[in-house]
């Protein structure tokens, strides 16, 4: 289980904290939503989880171990347990789809074996892109690129997948495909998935639990049905379209 304890993040040169005492427990096997408007601190929060960004204070506890201060090989080993999917896909433009999926093997073992390539091909087939193994990202649609990124995320058999606005750059059909894929992965492997989004629609479609983030603070937290049925916070109501933003 990932347990965030009182995470605060103040960027250098800024006086308002991007995250302000955030505590969240993300249950294993969950599809957990974090929703908030632009600038709420959502990206900062996921980046603190895989330590692309160090919290200014607070702790990231994973399965009872404090990972907040990990460095070097221990940090890299931890990052392999926590895959990440980006809004902009984050694929290497000069590598084929297959080589992109093989990158985590290169990162962890320094080489790519025939077995690794076979596994990467299987993963591409898993995301419906068996015929695109030799295509470069520029030759793929946004939805296809994101599916390559998901195959790459799966390469290390992660325990957690962090999705930062994974569908925000996609059309509704591709969004549906990506969300279905994430749900299947969750059901088949039990991988915990953290879904960062500004869209209530995305939360409603795949999340079990949700946290609402406003100005770096948690304002509401609970099972999706409960939060949707009886929102307490004004921002939640606005995100749900129950009140207008100017209200």
């Amino acid at each position: 289980m990932i347990s965030l304890q009182n995470i605060t993040k103040v960027y250098d040169g800024s006086d308002v904290p991007a995250l302000d005492g955030v505590s969240i427990d993300i249950p294993d096997g969950d599809i957990f939503g974090i929703i908030g408007i632009s600038g709420a601190g959502k990206s900062t929060l996921v980046r603190c989880i895989n330590l692309l960004e160090r919290p200014t204070s607070g702790h990231v506890i994973v399965d009872g171990t404090d990972v907040t201060d990990l460095t070097g090989a221990e940090l890299r080993a931890y990052r392999r347990r926590v895959a990440m999917i980006f809004q902009g896909f984050g694929l290497l433009a000069q590598k084929t789809a297959l080589d992109n999926v093989c990158f985590p093997f290169l990162a962890s073992n320094g080489r790519v074996t025939a077995d690794d390539r076979a596994k990467a091909s299987e993963l591409l087939a898993r995301v419906g892109l068996a015929d695109k193994a030799d295509s470069y990202p520029a030759q793929l649609s946004g939805g296809q690129q994101q599916r390559v990124a998901i195959a790459r995320a799966l390469a290390c058999d992660p325990e957690y997948i962090l999705c930062d606005e994974a569908t925000s750059a996609l059309d509704p059909a591709s969004t549906q495909q990506i969300l279905d894929l994430l749900r299947q992965i969750n059901e088949e492997t039990g991988t915990t998935i953290l879904v960062i989004t500004h869209s209530m629609d995305v939360v409603e479609r795949i999340c079990k639990n949700v946290t609402v983030l406003v100005h770096g603070k948690v304002v509401e937290q609970g099972p999706v049905e409960q939060v949707f049925a009886d929102p307490q916070d004004e921002t939640t109501k606005a995100l749900l379209g129950r009140v207008s933003w100017n209200a």
Binding site: R79, G90, A107
Partner: peptide, 30 residues
């Protein structure tokens, strides 16, 4: 080289020499 491609490599658990050799330089080659 786009920042998010490099961050993705970092998030995969790649070391800095590995990122330089297998991601940064090949991406910057053209």
């Amino acid at each position: 080289v786009p920042r998010d491609a490099i961050e993705a490599a970092e998030a995969c658990g790649a070391s800095i020499p590995r990122i330089v050799r297998s991601a940064l330089l090949p991406e910057a080659l053209p």
